[in-house]
Write a protein that binds this DNA or RNA. Structure first.
Length: 310
DNA sequence: CGGAGTGTTAGTCG
DNA sequence: CCGACTAACACTCC
């Protein structure tokens, strides 16, 4: 559970933009070829020696612009990580200790990110057995593409292919063009559909996944299996406001680390303590103290409060 | 020890 | 076109 959605990828993007923009890729180690969606020789030829001119995000994808006009596109899927380390191989950011999220695991009570867990220990050892692609920069710093479950990928695309990918995705919910009118128009095009899974359809609204779709529904007081046609205009406005507010807060908190996600420094995000229903089935609703329930929608879990959400 | 659960997305099938 | 389902994978939880 807990995968990079828009806020997590946005966090990595902002950090990497500072860390690797204008750096030159000296070499790339491809340890697991299937995660690189290009012939290896072509990939190495077009990537090695190139300067990264920009780091961008589209939906849940990270894009590195290369000086030669090609682009690296990353999708982290569920357990992908992009972690930067300077030439010392230790902590980025001037040698200060990593400030991990001060978040307690609600099951064990142990502080997450306290370097107690095996995963945390793996994390400070880079490369580790999940470091499937490694970018080595000219200054000795490195970028590790780790992926436990190996669903993530990096593609090498030209401008035309990038445009094609871009067109497959919908509106960016934190951009100006995501107005309430646009939101309504998108939803009402599919008014027979169930709201929560619809919020996650990438070709309508880009970047919303299972966590933030659940949270938006809770915030708006809408039960996640309502059909769009049964939701009033006032409720849709509430949902729209909630979605934007939650995504912005999540970016501010550097994302949700429910499981594998860490930012470009290898730090956990701090959003989990602001989540109201996600992974809280069986706990008390923070609003009405009734018990939070969960249901399956498609193959994914949705948690909701049966009293607060109608 | 073993089976279920975890979630993103492409793909298949009816 | 649509929904339902599965595969890809590895680890955790019960």
């Amino acid at each position: 559970m807990g995968m990079p959605e828009l806020p997590e990828v946005e966090t990595i993007k902002r950090e990497l933009a500072e860390l690797i923009r204008n750096k030159k890729i000296k070499s790339v180690d491809i340890n697991l070829a299937k995660q690189v969606k290009a012939p290896k020789a072509k990939f190495l030829k077009l990537v090695q020696g190139q300067k990264i001119t920009a780091v961008r995000r589209r939906a849940k994808m990270l894009i590195f612009d290369l000086q030669n006009g090609w682009h690296l596109v990353f999708h982290l899927k569920m357990t992908g990580q992009l972690i930067y380390r300077d030439r010392s191989g230790k902590l980025a950011g001037g040698g200060h200790p990593i400030k991990y999220g001060d978040v307690k695991d609600k099951k064990s009570g142990a502080k997450m990110g306290s370097l107690d867990s095996a995963r945390d220990k793996l994390l400070i050892n880079l490369p580790n057995k999940y470091s499937h692609v490694i970018f080595n920069f000219h200054d000795g710093s490195r970028l590790f593409f780790n992926d436990l479950r190996q669903f993530g990928w990096v593609k090498l695309v030209d401008k035309e292919e990038l445009n094609k990918i871009d067109k497959e995705f919908g509106v960016e919910p934190l951009e100006k063009e995501f107005t309430f009118e646009k939101f309504k128009e998108l939803l009402l095009k599919k008014k027979g559909k169930v709201i929560k899974p619809l919020l996650m359809e990438q070709d309508s609204i880009a970047g919303v996944g299972n966590i933030y779709a659940q949270e938006a529904c809770f915030c708006a007081g809408i039960v996640p299996n309502r059909r769009v046609k049964d939701i009033s205009n006032a409720e849709l406005k509430e949902l729209y406001d909630c979605l934007i507010r939650i995504l912005k807060l999540a970016v501010e908190k550097k994302g949700t680390s429910a499981d594998n996600y860490v930012d470009a420094f290898g730090r956990q995000g701090n959003m989990i303590e602001y989540l109201k229903v996600y992974d809280r089935s069986g706990e008390k609703c923070p609003r009405c103290r009734n018990i939070i329930k969960s249901m399956k929608q498609g193959s994914r879990t949705t948690a909701y409060c049966p009293k607060c959400q109608r």
